[in-house]
Design a protein around this nucleic acid. Structure first.
Length: 135
RNA sequence: AGAGCGGGUCGGACGGUCGCUCCCGCACUUAUUUUAAGGUGUACUAAAGUGAGCUAAAGUUAAAAGUGAGCUAAAGUGAAAAAAUAAUCCACAACUUUAGGCACUUCAAACUUUAGGCACUUUAAUAGGUGCGGGUGAGGAAAGUCCGAGCAGGACAGGGCACGGUGGUGGUUAACGGCCACCCGGGGCAACCCGCGGGAAAGUGCCGCAGAAAACACACAGCCGAUGACCGCUAUAUACGGAACAGGCAAAGGUGAAAAGGUGCGGUAAGAGCGCACCGCAAAGCUGGUGACAGUUUUGGCAGGGCAAACCCCACCGCCUGCAAGACCAAGAAGCUGGUGCCCGGCCCGGGCGUUACCGGCGGGUAGGUCGCUUCCCGAUUCAUCGGGAGAGCUAAUCGGCAACGGUUAGUCAAGUUAAAUGGCCGUCGUCCCGUCAUAAUCGGCGGGAUACAGAACUCGGCUUAUAGGCCCGCUCUUUUA
């Protein structure tokens, strides 16, 4: 298995998988992203992405999803395996952007590095929180 | 050169690196398939048969000749085998044959065949995974889902009414509410643009505010008051004057989108198509045009408000639901109730299905996968292939047509996802704008900014809307130069 590949088996595909992650209720968020985590039996991490219609039109949503996927793909070595991750754009960010200016422009300025650092920080706090709850 | 009109077209490019979708090839790997075939094994099963030893009898002892008794059963031949006469068949020596008995010993041991089962295995097919290599991947609007088709289901998709849509004329097309050409009305000096552009003389309905009045004009304010009546003066009056009772009028005023054609002259008590001229209108005729319509002549003093995007009338068109259509597989479920006819669901005709199974309603359950689906079909095969046919497919050229469009020829086949691929990062360049440096000016150098609208979801033909910045073609007007 190559290091950065991201085949279909590494994604959450069915509705049940999504519901399972949500049911675990391990949720953290910052001003940009919202992350749900749940343990799985696969031995490798899996990702689901959910971007609501309120984030913008189809082009904007596609760009957001690609950024989220990309940050997961290139962070595989830095996050704990054996978890399902469900990434969303947080409502805070959507509201803030709507008020300030045009949504499209802000999405365009939103860089990959910003998303990735936010994602890693969230994973860190979520893992701690999960450990505290579990043990 | 400036201002403008119409149409077409592009909608960033290249490289590096890490990924994604689908397809093809190779390798490895996992699983499934025995209603894909073969092989091996098997004390797995079933059926059928053989079967040693034993007993008895007969026969032969090189072949030939010959013999085949007895008991029982079967087959063949034949009319008959309770006819072994002929023919046929079979057996006959380190024994053979035939027949029989038995269940003593061995004994579901051994062998053969058939059928099935199981296991292993080879090949094959299918599916998944991994790796390597190769190919492939958003738009002019993919959007809105507004029209028109294909396709699918409703048994068939038929007729009428209802309902809905369209609405100048003629073409074009698979079809259209699209497109083209023309007509009419309006706008612009012009290129050109705009128009839901049938019928208000079939009927019904509505017409706010303003205004006297919004539709049998029944006239607010007003004008006249010739004629008749009244009053005054006078002479008793038909003369003169007054008032405005009867009566006449619709010109001027104001309201409005709209108030019984417009302008001028005549005419009158005042007025009026009352008369005349020109314009407008209507009817009839003639000419031109496929037609919408246009031109023209004659006649009529003049029809009669607006709204049909109110109902309606006329002509033409239209069954309904939509790929979440629909088909198959898997999984799952709990029934209850109503009807005897039910269905084509707005209704009728007409038709179809069924006769104890169907159908309707409520409730419950599943909501995963494959196909549809991305050019399709057929054949060949050396397998990223080749050939043929079909497609309202796409792109050129050419011919016909004012054009939309059509014919012919050649080339070409171009994403196929489904929590939804077509991307992330970096570099170089392009285009436009701003600042600055330099220059007579342009070109140019440096720095900064911008690079739109927008993401396929069954497929086509249109329409509409969004769009940074370009490029090309044709045309109009004004100015200057030649």
């Amino acid at each position: 298995m190559k290091r950065f590949s991201f085949p279909k088996s590494r994604r959450l595909v069915t509705n049940r998988q999504f519901e399972a992650v949500l049911a675990r209720k391990l949720r953290v968020s910052d001003g940009l992203l919202t992350l749900y985590m749940a343990e799985n039996d696969c031995g490798y991490p899996r990702l689901g992405v959910s971007v609501a219609k309120s984030c913008g039109n189809a082009v904007v949503r596609n760009r957001l999803k690609r950024l989220l996927r990309e940050s997961f793909r290139q962070s595989r070595d830095e996050i704990p395996a054996g978890f399902d991750y469900l990434l969303m754009v947080s409502q805070q960010w959507t509201k803030k952007v709507e008020q300030s200016a045009g949504l499209g422009k802000d999405v365009k300025r939103l860089t990959y590095e910003r998303v990735r650092s936010s994602f890693l920080a969230l994973v860190d706090t979520a893992a701690k929180k999960g450990a505290a709850n579990g043990g």
